[in-house]
């Protein structure tokens, strides 16, 4: 049987360990990783981690740690292309990736407006978002990304609270095949069926579901 002292000591150690992880994650976020080239996230993604809409840098704050971890690992392995992110991810250790993604997931996300399933779309982009375009095998965006695009689990990231510029850039990367790190080509085959105009319109729709675009 474990003595009280040992339990207390164990808890204290765990607490310290937890803090150390948080601290490390915060350090990577604000100051960068321990190895050369691991620039801090804040430089491009903002002090609040909400991204820089004008430059197309995405929000990271509040995204699931599992999704962020996979993206960093995919940048490392080359499964996801980005001339900016690939060298950065390469310079991060696995521990730093784990710590910073946990930190980011815990940061406050913008509050998305709520859109019920029962709401009927009133224009074309909304129709794709809420109902899909089944004559082209395109399911509703919300059927995987959740109501109002808030994101579902580790595999389906939030669309709400991302800038139209980032969303459109990613959809276009899937359309052209330069991004292909989605499970089972679930996003790729859909993006390839969308027109350039639809990409822009759907991206604008989801960006409009949070206050981010209006941010100064």
């Amino acid at each position: 049987m474990m003595s009280l002292e040992r339990v207390l000591l164990g808890s204290a150690l765990l607490l310290m360990l937890g803090n150390a992880h948080a601290l490390e994650g915060q350090n990577v976020f604000t100051q960068g990783g321990s190895q050369p080239g691991a620039a801090p996230c804040v430089a491009c993604h903002g002090a609040d981690g909400l991204g820089l809409a004008a430059a197309g840098f995405p929000r990271l704050a509040g995204l699931p740690a599992g999704y962020l971890r996979k993206q960093l690992e995919d940048f490392k392995s080359g499964a996801r292309n980005s001339p900016v992110m690939q060298p950065l991810a390469n310079a991060l250790t696995q521990e730093e990736i784990n710590a910073v993604t946990r930190e980011l997931a815990a940061m406050p996300a913008p509050v998305a407006v709520s859109v019920h399933r029962s709401e009927m779309p009133t224009e074309a982009a909304q129709k794709i978002a809420l109902q899909g375009a089944w004559e082209r095998q395109i399911p509703a965006c919300v059927s995987c990304h959740g109501p109002a695009g808030v994101g579902v689990g580790d595999a389906f990231p939030p669309l709400a609270g991302q800038s139209a510029a980032y969303l459109a850039a990613q959809l276009n990367a899937w359309r052209s095949g330069t991004r292909h790190n989605d499970p089972n080509d679930l996003m790729g085959h859909i993006a390839k069926s969308l027109s350039a105009e639809e990409v822009q319109a759907v991206a604008t729709y989801f960006a409009s579901l949070s206050g981010q675009e209006a941010r100064p």
Binding site: V142, S143, C144, G146, P147, V150, G151, V152, G153, A155, P183, N184, L186
Partner: peptide, 23 residues
Amino acid sequence: KGQCAVCHGAEGQGQKVGDSYVM
């Protein structure tokens, strides 16, 4: 495992947002 679990979960439990199922 290969085709369905990503949405419906490893144990067929579906996935929720809040208390409402998406998958």
